[in-house]
Nucleic acid binder design. Structure first.
Length: 317
DNA sequence: CTCCAGGCAATTG
DNA sequence: CAATTGCATGGA
């Protein structure tokens, strides 16, 4: 394979859609991006290098050579799992959804190819701890600054000159961070910085590692309890971590946007009330009646993404 | 100026 | 119980 630098083409060619499953195993070099990867990555393969760019921050990178492995898996096997290609589009929504909600179905049909990925748990924990009550602009800035200050630096040679990118910091790096220094990266929110450091230490000690290892076998409630024991992680963030970081596609996080579409699209009255814990859990039960249990969160993310773009008319993701 | 952004935790009624 | 407030900042 000859290295072909088309990284900047990636930034421009954002609407190009290719079938990852077909392309991934064809052995050809390709450039592939998709704007619909909310809370996930854009993927770009340049020759023998694979670059993942998050929509939470724009400077994450993994550079891999063909003979390297990730988590003990061949790259193609890793990506197959990473992009959850084992999940078929047609299985995400029940067969009753389309006839029951034809208008919603018409809106979400173009979004059915959205993938919810199995991302790195620690990374998801940190990024979602940065995502409380503020806009995507500030969330991105926080995570971006964290990677720049605490992540490993990569310099990538491109035909347009060197490109500096940063990997996501390891748990140990944030566990030993100075709170005041980290607060500079967390919107000057010292409480958040302290929470992230405490979580990183817990992760390093192995307490959270066990949750990650066992997350496929235990109940959602068990996962939530372990996560919510940490200051700065509530039900919503715990559900996000389960969904995006632990591959628990049954986890159904409810944020301000989900709350909105539960009322506007499905007429759930309780969605107009505030998100107390009791109401949060009630709304989840209601959502599962519509979306089923196994892929409630997966389906919810498709709805979430469609809601933001088609109804709220948000430009970026 | 006000209101809201992919909330949580502590406090008050 | 439920409702309110502090945390922080920037864009609409």
């Amino acid at each position: 394979m000859t290295a072909r630098n088309n990284l900047f083409k990636y930034f421009i060619n954002t609407d190009k859609r290719l079938n990852l499953k077909d392309t991934l195993f064809s052995g050809q070099t390709f450039s592939w991006t998709k704007r619909d990867f909310a809370t996930g990555y854009h993927l770009n393969i340049i020759g023998d290098r694979i670059i993942l760019l998050s929509d939470f921050y724009e400077n994450y990178i993994e550079i891999l050579s063909d003979n390297k492995k990730i988590n003990g898996l061949r790259i193609s096997d890793f990506l197959y799992r990473y992009f959850s290609l084992d999940i078929e589009e047609k299985t995400i929504f029940s067969s009753r959804f389309q006839p029951d909600f034809p208008e919603v179905w018409r809106l979400i049909e173009p979004y059915l190819s959205v993938r919810v990925m199995r991302q790195d748990p620690f990374e998801v924990m940190v990024t979602f701890m940065c995502a409380q009550g503020i806009g995507m602009h500030l969330i991105r800035r926080q995570v971006s600054m964290i990677t720049e200050r605490y992540g490993e630096k990569y310099v990538l040679d491109t035909e347009n000159g060197p490109l500096v990118l940063h990997g996501f910091p390891a748990p140990s790096s944030l566990a030993s961070a100075n709170p005041n220094e980290l607060a500079l990266c967390t919107n000057n929110n010292r409480i958040r910085a302290a929470n992230i450091i405490a979580m990183a230490r817990s992760f390093e000690s192995g307490k959270l590692g066990l949750v990650c290892a066992e997350s496929g076998n235990c109940s959602l409630e068990t996962i939530r309890e372990a996560l919510c024991a940490h200051s700065g992680i509530g039900l919503k963030i715990a559900d996000c971590i389960a969904l995006f970081g632990l591959g628990r596609f049954d986890a159904f996080p409810i944020d301000t946007h989900v709350k909105q579409y539960l009322w506007e699209w499905f007429g759930i009255e309780a969605a107009r009330k505030s998100l107390t814990e009791k109401n949060y859990r009630f709304l989840q039960d209601e959502a599962r009646k519509i979306l089923g249990n196994e892929f409630a969160g997966y389906a919810g993310h498709i709805l979430f993404h469609c809601w933001r773009k088609e109804v709220k008319k948000m430009k970026a993701f």
